[in-house]
Design a protein around this nucleic acid. Sequence first.
DNA 1: GCAATAGTGTCTATCAGACATTATGTG
DNA 2: CACATAATGTCTGATAGACACTATTGC
Lengths: 247, 247
Amino acid sequence: MNGIGLAVSTVIFALRPHPETGRPVLSIPLVRRTRAPFEGLWCLPGGWVDPAESLATSAGRTLVETTGVRPSYLEQLYTFGAPDRSPGDRVVSVVYWALVRPDQIGERPPSSKGPAFDAENVAWFVADSLGSPRGSDGLHLAFDHDAVVAYALWRLRTKVEYSAIAQGFLGSTFTLSELRQVHEAVLDRELDPANFRRQVEGSGTIVATGEHVLGGRHRPPRLYRYDTSAPLVDNGPLGELTPGEMS
Amino acid sequence: MNGIGLAVSTVIFALRPHPETGRPVLSIPLVRRTRAPFEGLWCLPGGWVDPAESLATSAGRTLVETTGVRPSYLEQLYTFGAPDRSPGDRVVSVVYWALVRPDQIGERPPSSKGPAFDAENVAWFVADSLGSPRGSDGLHLAFDHDAVVAYALWRLRTKVEYSAIAQGFLGSTFTLSELRQVHEAVLDRELDPANFRRQVEGSGTIVATGEHVLGGRHRPPRLYRYDTSAPLVDNGPLGELTPGEMS
DNA sequence: GCAATAGTGTCTATCAGACATTATGTG
DNA sequence: CACATAATGTCTGATAGACACTATTGC
């Protein structure tokens, strides 16, 4: 007990159509602050930790309450605790990062149950337009959230190259083309379809379902699913946090 | 402000002679608890976060106070916050991991200044004898510190393979043989001297000083130092925490 | 057939690991 | 010289990237 406020925040990633090009682009929902400090500025969704709930549960709860999205993946990122990061009383924030599929984004507040979020003050931003260093051009967020977003972006991009994290953006089955497009959107560069196929097939993380997708004006691609016996990501002895463990 | 206690703990690594074989082995200092809960059990050094100090400063301060060592490297590991991880009031622990050189280990409490640590209740343990899963054989620590140690060990071993973290165990100059022995002790396996040399020379992280070590009954090895223009480790946008930044 | 994407094959540069060889100090 | 370790060289198998080629659908 030392009079330090403990909060959680979450950097949420989704692939959404770019407002101009329409191509899928890494996007982050932010919340506009409606009170001091930093009133009017955008910041990460979050809130206080309830003494009875775990940190991950707290992150999952607050992000649903404020943005209406239900993530398919949630992982702790880093704890930010500089004494001056928030005016007034000391606040330490345990920051998580999350992935959501398009179908997990509630564009409207859920009508029946749960607290409705304030849609007026929630908006999606292209990830690459955020996270620029203090003092530079571009949109700047409240608190130290510029640095937080930059770090989360780095972690996602690093991790997509060696883990099966991309499935957080995909449904239960998908084509190799869809999986590749996820990687391309995250890494923001094109990948060779042939080499990508070899790599991901050789990794053993995905399994062909035997089904194909018909209807395209071209050869029907195979459907794949992730091998559920393989871990989603390599987090060492900690393991990953799946939605089931979140609450 | 939510009535949650905020603490820091640190997993400290040093290379020390194995109590039986005498060969350098990864070792961790622990503190014996002198009060409930878990009185008599060993646990990680740590303490409460002072509202005025940063998390890293807090970690650095508490580990010096309790064990007398001054680390050459300190990095945040993970924040552990399960509601039931400590009996009584809720405690969330931000855990750091640290590296120390042999000369930074104060075997006796510093005589002149600072609080003397309780040498009776501090002891070094071979890292591989710790971190075993709950319920299995072996020494078990207070709180959730078994899992904490296991995770820290995983992180150190992962990181030594792609970063220049080994310098945390070495002085300002060293031979390739010494550097290799650090890697071998951390990874607990032998490395081919020739291939190790090529890899580390090719990485560009070390520079030959031009000097040699004489006196051995063999060809005198070159001395190297780390290239100070290269970063110690790749922590993304956060960068590393050097001792200078700790306080 | 043509367009479009799925899927396979092949070549090459690079790199890690195994291991042979040479170099240079001390006793 | 013998010995021990330093330092260099060479071979090989695995792999990533570039890119050519074949397969299969809809129109």
